[in-house]
């Protein structure tokens, strides 16, 4: 007969021991692989990544209350203007919050940058694009076949972006 207190202690020990007892397995980080896709709103229609022009695509995940996200937005806008790659900015917030973003951000989000809004629950979308931890800003560069060839957690630099786009153009 196990007393209630003993049972509690056993459960507690089992709970603590669990994480140490199971073997850790190492898997290679997911990259490249199958063509990625999404179906997100631009405020007027649902846009599928697969329906966009087949060229190198910079996909940036951001929020307006994330300072590094806001800082890198002009660089992404310049990249979009210079071409030939296209830039998709996915706001992980409600359209209302985007509309209230600082003026500089709204100016950068004008075409040719394509502004989309993420789903209400964005973790599936983020994980699909290789960001299971949900850290922002997060940028993925896709080749023309929509396969990941570079990704960056944190603010991007012009050097990193140019190098990534150049590399993705060759794949």
């Amino acid at each position: 007969m196990i007393s209630s207190r003993s049972a509690s202690l056993l459960i507690g020990l089992a709970a603590l021991a669990g994480p140490f007892c199971l073997p850790a397995a190492a898997h290679a980080a997911e990259a490249g692989g199958a063509a990625l896709d999404f179906e997100l709103s631009d405020g007027r229609a649902f846009i599928r990544l697969a329906d966009l022009p087949q060229r190198v695509t910079v996909v940036n995940f951001w929020r307006s209350d994330c300072p590094p996200c806001v800082r890198e937005m002009p660089l992404l806008a310049d990249t979009a203007r210079q071409g030939p790659s296209q830039v998709v900015a996915i706001a992980l917030q409600r359209p209302y919050e985007t509309a209230n973003a600082p003026g500089g951000v709204l100016a950068a989000l004008q075409p040719p940058v394509r502004l989309l809004h993420g789903p209400s629950e964005p973790r599936g979308l983020l994980a699909r694009f290789g960001n299971r931890a949900g850290a922002l800003p997060y940028t993925v560069v896709l080749d023309a076949q929509r396969r990941t060839c570079a990704r960056q957690t944190g603010e991007v630099t012009a050097d990193w972006l140019n190098t990534a786009i150049h590399r993705c153009s060759r794949t």
Binding site: P67, P68, L92, Q93, E121, G134, A135, L136, P137, G154
Partner: peptide, 22 residues
């Protein structure tokens, strides 16, 4: 929260519904 230059969103829900946080 801000972590240096990264905001960890934890897949934060941005919608109107009480959905599970990651």
């Amino acid at each position: 929260k801000q972590l240096g230059d990264v905001t960890v969103s934890s897949g934060r829900s941005v919608g109107a519904k009480p959905v599970l946080r990651d």
